Simulated assay, not measured.
Amino acid sequence: MSSNSLVASLMNAETATKACDAHGDYLSTHVVFGKTDTWSGCPDCAEEKRQRDQVKEFEENRKIAAQNRLASRIGYACLPPRFAGKSFESYRADTEQQKKYLENCKQYAENFPEHLKSGDGLMLLGNPGTGKTHLAVATLNYIVQHHGEAGLYTTAARMFRRIKDTYTSKDETESQAIDAFASPALLVLDEVGVSFGSDSELNYLFDIMNERYEQCLPTIIVSNVPPGDLGQWVGDRVVDRLRECSKLMVFNWESARRELGRGAA
């Protein structure tokens, strides 16, 4: 049957008054078209269903968009595969000191919107293999997933290498590279003290940390360097700013990697 025949069929269709339990009487049309032979339903019910379907579709699209934004933020955080799944739940806290530091980081992550206003950060310093990076990354993961903020993880060496690569690159300027580390809501800077601590690196680090300090953007510093030696690797000016706005936690217990090594033997 052609569309013209359908229109003609509807124009000449039989009508009758039907009753809807929800909306009362309505005019129903007897639709006969091809193999279809039925009476039309309540138009108010049909409109309500259309609106429900529209809301459902909107919610589904909103959830997909939120998932995509989260995936984008997690990707932006540049977490290496080994650290991507680190969480507070997977952190091993046996001693009272470990439990205290775990709770400190959890509270920091939960209250991050307040820290973002004040620019307060964390310094996780001490022995290798004591879980500093785990707690720093767990904090970053929580903030990205629960507060929707843009965070970035990097090592000091990787940060300096990216900046120095701009010397021979046409794709990114030095200022753009510095801004990539100066602008995220949270920067986790790991392995501070592993690089050479040259004058140029100290200047780059000061530029980044000073910009973050002025903009009240929190930073989590992770280093195996003792607190008293930190200035040698980041410069006294950076240390002054960190002391002003960062909570210090010193991880002075034995490396968990050594325990695992002995157990494996």
Rank of each mutant, 00 (worst) to 15 (best):
Arg52Met: 12
Gln176Leu: 07
Arg92Asp: 12
Lys100Phe: 14
Ile220Asn: 09
Ser90Phe: 00
Ala84Lys: 01
Tyr76Ile: 01
Asn111Ala: 15
Gly75Thr: 09
Asp229Thr: 05
Lys170Ala: 08
Gly263Cys: 12
Arg92Asn: 13
Glu174Met: 05
Tyr167Lys: 07
Thr17Ala: 08
Ser223His: 05
Lys247His: 14
His23Phe: 04
Ser183Pro: 07
Asp37Asn: 13
Ser90Ala: 00
Ser175Thr: 13
Ala256Phe: 14
Gln107Tyr: 11
Ala264Tyr: 11
Ser223Tyr: 09
Trp253Met: 03
Leu205Glu: 00
Lys35Leu: 07
Gly34Leu: 07
Glu172Ser: 02
Glu254Ala: 13
Ser183Ala: 10
Val192Gln: 06
Pro113Ala: 05
Asp229Asn: 11
Leu189Lys: 06
Val225Lys: 01
Ser2Pro: 04
Ala65His: 05
Glu191Met: 02
Arg241Phe: 00
Gln145Ser: 09
Arg92Cys: 11
Val250Ser: 12
Glu59Leu: 14
Asp179His: 11
Asp199Val: 11
Gln97Lys: 12
Pro128Trp: 08
Ser246Gln: 03
Phe88Glu: 02
Glu172Gln: 13
Ala256Tyr: 15
Cys45Leu: 05
Pro81His: 01
Asp21Ile: 13
Leu189Arg: 06
Arg262Trp: 04
Thr154Arg: 10
Trp39Glu: 00
Lys63Gln: 14
Ser195Gly: 05
Ser40Thr: 14
Gly151Gln: 02
Glu114Gln: 15
Glu254Lys: 13
Ala66Ile: 08
Phe83Cys: 00
Leu135Arg: 03
Glu14Gln: 14
Gly41Arg: 08
Ala157Val: 13
Glu244Trp: 00
Gln232Arg: 09
Ala93Arg: 06
Glu48Phe: 03
Pro81Thr: 04
Pro81Gly: 02
Ala150Leu: 10
Arg69Trp: 01
Thr17Met: 11
Glu214Ala: 14
Asp190Thr: 07
Gln215Asp: 10
Thr36Ser: 12
Gly24Ser: 09
Thr173Ile: 10
Phe196Leu: 12
Thr36Glu: 12
Leu202Tyr: 05
Trp39Ile: 03
Ser169Gly: 08
Ala77Val: 03
Ser200Gln: 14
Thr17Asn: 10
Leu189Ala: 07
Ala157Leu: 10
Leu202Cys: 06
Pro43Tyr: 05
Glu244Ser: 11
Arg62Ser: 06
Ser169Pro: 07
Tyr213Thr: 07
Ala256Leu: 08
Arg237Gly: 03
Tyr91Trp: 01
Asp94Lys: 10
Leu27Arg: 11
Ala77His: 04
